[in-house]
Design a protein around this nucleic acid. Sequence first.
DNA 1: GTCTATATAGGGATAGAC
DNA 2: GTCTATCCCTATATAGAC
Lengths: 215, 215
Amino acid sequence: MDEIIEIKEEIQPEHKHHSTEKDILEAAKRVFQIKGMYGARMQEIADEAGINKAMLHYYFRSKDKLFDAVFQDAAKNFFSKIRELLNVDKPLLEKIEYFVENYVELLMKNSFIPAFIITEVHQNPDRIKNVFLESGVNIEMQFISDIKTAISLGIIHPVDPKQLIINIIGLCVFPVAAKPIIKTMLSFGDEEYLKFLESRKKEVSKFIINAIKVH
Amino acid sequence: MDEIIEIKEEIQPEHKHHSTEKDILEAAKRVFQIKGMYGARMQEIADEAGINKAMLHYYFRSKDKLFDAVFQDAAKNFFSKIRELLNVDKPLLEKIEYFVENYVELLMKNSFIPAFIITEVHQNPDRIKNVFLESGVNIEMQFISDIKTAISLGIIHPVDPKQLIINIIGLCVFPVAAKPIIKTMLSFGDEEYLKFLESRKKEVSKFIINAIKVH
DNA sequence: GTCTATATAGGGATAGAC
DNA sequence: GTCTATCCCTATATAGAC
């Protein structure tokens, strides 16, 4: 009998009738993304969720498991969004424009994610592996072949597709990941910084296309 | 007599005849840069330095002060190097080439610094302020005026100088800051990743110059 | 200056009532 | 499922001998 019950619990989601689990995840997300795995306190997450500390353990057993739930979720969204935006059916140059505009927009709405992921993967490189294991292999295969095609058609200059992908992603992500540094370096207030990012939606794709397009 | 000795110690660097302080800083640097402020353990730093835990407090009073010494040192080197490379006396396009080549080289030799700084500034934005307060104001003024001049001479297309600076720095820093992510995404082993960075010394400056140069 | 031993607090985790 | 109270370990920090 015990075994049957166990199977049932594995098939159906646990705690399905309550939003507490979701509340905890949202609270944990807010705290972990700023303070990180080691800087975050279970007490602060409980306060943020408006519940008791013991509940965190009831739902997620340990801090590490709770963190992992938050991290996996954030990272999977982050990378599946890249794949999604790179897989729209457009010619290469339009696709780059489309990607930059939408990805910068997404990053502006989730501005803590890049630094959060960089931090946690830097401190524990193994964490990234599970993310890619589940979300399928070689996410940028389609985009790489787009680039190769455009090169052979003489639309863009010859370029290592992997270098180009990293250039594109880096140009979008870096200014968000390094937000407080850039604000200080360039003497930006909050509004100026936001305008700066907003401009990048157009500026970065112009920059990239200028760099690779055959005129 | 006691007072005279005290004054002497304040004028000259403390603990001058021993390398212990330096040993501690080096050990702390290694540990903090990977584990971060909250993940690092004083015991581990002591082990790494080959001394006793109590010595850390003797020399630096607290974990926070020790961390701050490490962070300030790392950050100041990091940013003063940017300024130094951007202030060589060369025409803009050559200067960009020179910057990219040397900065990527430096980053390859100090590959933990970018993620370390991004992490700690993300978790505690105030830390970055002291860095810029001491190392002078507006580090990129010269470079910004170089860009404006090149635009007015018709050498490069009109572009927001601040956007261009962030593009240049981002293209160098991002692939190092996101090292484990990129290795996983692009299925790179250690050697492939190093070759990838090595190529960027030339590829990135070609990319940037293509993007901005008037042909 | 360097060590051993210890104080003290903080935080993750659990027990158990309801 | 949710709470209170508490356990217990770990980590920073200090005291004090040498």
